[in-house]
Design a protein around this nucleic acid. Structure first.
Length: 495
RNA sequence: GGGGCUAUCGUCUAGGGGUUAGGACACCGCCCUUUCACGGCGGCAACACGGGUUCAAAUCCCGUUAGCCCUACCA
């Protein structure tokens, strides 16, 4: 029986939740959901200097907002709690239980060794190689016999732990290469001779094991958490052969690897601050729906195929979560990096806003509204939402409703639209006492007829008088949203 | 320096020996219209470069160039 699919997203809590990380998490999530598997959130906090609890919370909140729910992992805002049977899910809480025993085993079995080279010593040796223009490899090439692999240097010094990398004739090597069969990149061969004995565990106190490194922890954690598919950014491709070596030495079967390309900024450089928003919370503030983020991010580097065919119309581009899950396939992921396109995100957002019901939109729109929003009736909210549902973002929707909350003090193009000819019509509008759509429309038409005006003439005059500018939602909605009393009082100034 | 990855419109991409190189976003134009939008229709626009292989190359092979990743006791 094949094992249940298990994927994981393993960010390090050293700052905000990056949009690139969210995309990787999204792929993991999609894959797990598609195969009825489990999705794990694991916090890689072995960088003691930069990892904080606040940052862990930012990750949890960001993931939750994005709708990427995890089946195993930390419980939001509860540092000591987790869900799942293979926890803890914060690496620093796994030291004693998971890492230490493996390190000891590796040393005892002669698969890894204590390295007592000092940082300064290493720097000198590295420089010697650099100066000759040859790559520095610990205990290899230029550096052969200088390392601690076969010697035991001063035992009173603190030590790090290094892995003995393959010598070249291990059975799991092919032609001296460590082979990675990547689900998105294809087969990649890494000559084992180009790798050296890397550090598994940082230098600790004398006689003490220090904090293990990322490359060590991932292997241990992915194994003990039963991760079957490691889906991560392709910046890890070059780390993979080191990890594979550790899996082999430990006698573990490596998981399936899928390295997904990175997301670049508009100019093709790594997505960073200067390209605008990189943190997920910034996108939230921009008025984007989480579903838009999911779709836009998924569609970068991924081309869904229906019966072997790519999407062929704008209509098909707008996929629901259910469709994405159904269609998701690692084999349809691009090998090359994609540039992030805000225009496309906005377009997707607009489409998704259009397709939502007003009830679906309301909770997302609410944070962008003043407190007065909550005092309004359901019917009023419904009209407000549907009247502005053509907007590109929630912010845009909120902006087009600002006239509801305060009377204008400036009037744009008043001379042009509020003319003596429309004035009598304005007076008639002010006299109306029912702004329900049907009656209002009927009354409006009668006024137009009576005053010999076109819809445009009256509508624009009203917009300027009521909203201060010739732009607003449909004129009947505008009047309804304002209400009879408020509209009348705003009109008074012009009569 | 070494090892690795990548390369089709401005962007996301389809296509993987013979196509008018297809779609989407953006942009431009027209139409619709009570404003702004929405919507509809149309247009502009691409195979990085050089060699091979082949009757035929965007597609296969080899180089070159460019970008990126690893080469950390960061992740």
């Amino acid at each position: 029986m094949p094992r249940q699919v298990v994927t994981r997203f393993a960010p390090s809590p050293t700052g905000m939740l990056h949009i690139g990380g969210v995309r990787t998490a999204l792929f993991c999530w999609l894959y797990a959901r598609k195969h009825g598997g489990r999705f794990i959130l694991r916090v890689e906090d072995t960088d003691l200097d930069r990892s904080t609890d606040d940052n862990i919370r930012i990750i949890e909140d960001g993931m939750a907002w994005c709708g990427l729910d995890w089946d195993e992992g930390p419980v939001a805002s509860e540092p000591l709690k987790w869900v799942g049977s293979n926890g803890p899910y914060r690496q620093m809480q796994r030291m004693e239980s998971n890492y230490k025993p493996v390190v000891e085993k590796l040393i005892n079995e002669g698969l890894a060794y204590r390295c007592r080279c000092t940082k300064e010593d290493l720097e000198v040796r590295r420089k010697i190689a650099d100066d000759k223009g040859i790559p520095f490899q610990y205990n290899r090439g230029q550096d052969a016999d200088k390392g601690c692999r076969d010697k035991n240097h001063d035992a009173s010094r603190p030590f790090s732990v290094r892995l003995k990398m393959p010598s070249g004739n291990e059975p799991w090597l092919e032609n001296g290469c460590i082979v990675l069969n990547d689900r998105v990149k294809g087969r990649i061969d890494f000559p084992a001779a180009t790798l050296d004995d890397w550090v598994l565990v940082r230098t600790g106190d004398v006689d003490q094991i220090g904090v293990p490194t990322y490359n060590f922890c991932v292997v241990i954690d992915d194994t003990s958490m039963e991760v079957t598919h490691v889906i991560r950014g392709d910046d890890h491709v070059s780390n993979t052969p080191k990890q594979i070596a550790l899996y082999r030495v430990l006698g573990f079967e490596p998981p399936v690897f899928a390295h997904v390309p990175m997301i670049l900024g508009k100019d093709g450089a790594k997505l960073s601050k200067r390209h605008g928003a990189t943190s997920i919370t910034e996108y939230q503030a921009l008025g984007l729906l989480p579903s838009s983020i999911r779709l836009a991010l998924a569609r970068l580097s991924w081309t869904p195929k229906v019966d072997g065919r790519a999407l062929e119309s704008a209509e098909e581009e707008i996929l629901t979560d259910a469709q994405m899950i159904e269609l998701f396939d690692l084999g349809d992921i691009q090998k090359s990096p994609a540039r992030f396109d805000m225009d496309k995100l906005n377009w997707i957002n607009q489409k998704l806003i259009q397709r939502s019901t007003w009830q679906e939109l309301e909770p997302h729109l609410r944070p962008f509204m003043p407190d007065a929003w909550d005092t309004k009736s359901e019917e009023w909210k419904k009209v407000a939402v549907t009247a502005t549902q053509k907007g590109k973002s929630l912010v845009e929707m909120a902006n087009s409703l600002t006239f509801c909350w305060s009377a204008p003090t400036e009037f744009e193009s008043a001379d042009k639209f509020i003319t003596p000819t429309v004035n009598p019509a304005l007076r008639e509008i002010a006299a109306l006492s029912n702004y329900e759509h049907g009656p209002l429309r009927a009354a409006f038409d009668e006024i137009l007829e009576r005053q010999g005006l076109k819809t445009k003439d009256l509508a624009q005059a009203l917009r300027v008088a009521l909203c201060g500018k010739p732009i607003s939602p449909g004129i009947f909605d505008t009047l309804y949203l304002l209400g009879v009393e408020e509209a009348r009082s705003r009109l008074k100034k012009w009569l």
